[in-house]
């Protein structure tokens, strides 16, 4: 049995259209004008058990709407979907015992109470056996290192600490599939790394299937092996993260810190252009198709007094823009 099986899933919302100003409002009151907005436009994909898949796209691409249909929150307009063999909107309650969803911008922890109280409530909601619950909580507290925060009101926790508790809470009932919608939003670099490491461990050690949406390329690269890209509610890419990089991450940026204030004269390397030159610093853009990055670095180190060197990949937004360009699709979608 597959973890997730989606076939030709579609969701159309009816949105009211109104001309600007009071006159437009009066007109809409008398004769409302509705227009169909397609949030998800016939997407199909499958997730095998134990997969960690990135689900990306710009704001309004239809990511959240898809996740809401897969968790049974929304009814689709048409199409089929099975999660762990169940139809989400028909078997919502049964499915809820076997899946979990974590929304970075929606907290399930009680703001004025310590996480321990929220965990006890979740144990009651999922009807967990008290002994099994205690054992599971103990394991998660160790894994997420949240023993220090268990009895502190949530309002006094940092966002990173809170998010660790959020994810721990979502795992109490041992879900087989987890839908994560922007779990690292607003977190600092350290907290992001911690969340990514935890998600990796969860996927590898417990075999939990992950469907992760994020605008941060690092989340997808470090947690997922496969990535699905959607735009305008349609699927535009579905392959491994490595394939995504090969296909679309051609451009890299090399940032050099130099030992000397004077900017060296650059050797002529095909596919390499200087985008910024300052005292002690040089920034270069490399077309990896024209010149392998290793060769570029070797020649730079040989030619310039390099103190430090970093290779940056373009942000995911740029990669996605490249996918749209390649598939002839551009612009903003309708709804997230």
């Amino acid at each position: 049995m597959r973890a997730v099986d989606v076939r030709d899933l579609r969701k159309v919302f009816q949105a009211k259209r109104k001309r600007p100003g009071l006159a437009g409002s009066l007109r809409a009151l008398w004769r409302p004008d509705y227009t169909a907005v397609t949030a998800v436009d016939g997407i199909s994909f499958r997730l095998e058990r134990g997969e960690a898949v990135g689900f990306v796209g710009p704001n309004g691409a239809g990511k959240s709407t898809t996740i809401k249909m897969l968790t049974g929150i929304l009814h689709p307009t048409s199409g089929e979907s099975h999660v762990l063999g169940l139809v989400p909107w028909r078997d919502r309650s049964r499915l809820a015992y076997r899946i979990a969803s974590v929304f970075g911008q929606r907290s399930q922890l009680w703001y004025h109470l310590p996480p321990a109280d929220s965990f006890n409530l979740l144990a009651r909601i999922y009807e967990l056996d008290q002994r099994a619950y205690r054992e599971r909580l103990h394991r998660l507290v160790e894994l997420f290192q949240i023993d220090r925060y268990l009895h502190i009101p949530v309002r006094r926790l940092s966002l990173g600490e809170r998010m660790r508790c959020e994810i721990a809470g979502a795992l109490l009932h041992r879900p087989e599939v987890i839908f994560l919608d922007e779990p690292t939003i607003g977190l600092d670099v350290v907290a992001r790394q911690q969340i990514r490491a935890l998600l990796r461990a969860l996927n590898q050690e417990e075999g939990v299937t992950l469907l992760l949406t994020s605008h941060d390329a690092g989340d997808i690269e470090q947690v997922c092996r496969r990535v699905i890209v959607i735009n305008h509610g349609s699927l535009v890419f579905d392959d491994t993260v490595a394939a995504l990089k090969r296909a679309f991450l051609r451009r890299k940026v090399i940032d050099l810190k130099l030992a000397e204030a004077t900017t060296p004269t650059m050797p002529a390397i095909p596919g390499v252009t200087a985008v910024a030159a300052e005292p002690f610093r040089l920034r270069l853009e490399v077309d990896a198709d024209a010149q392998p990055i290793e060769q570029v670095i070797a020649r730079l180190v040989a030619h310039c007094p390099v103190v430090d060197l970093t290779v940056e990949e373009p942000p995911l937004e740029e990669v996605i823009a490249a996918i749209y360009a390649a598939t002839g699709r551009e612009g903003e979608g309708a709804r997230g």
Partner: peptide, 11 residues
């Protein structure tokens, strides 16, 4: 704001 409740098993 019903999303939270709809994603959980209780009525």
């Amino acid at each position: 704001q019903l999303d939270y409740y709809l994603a959980l098993p209780k009525d």
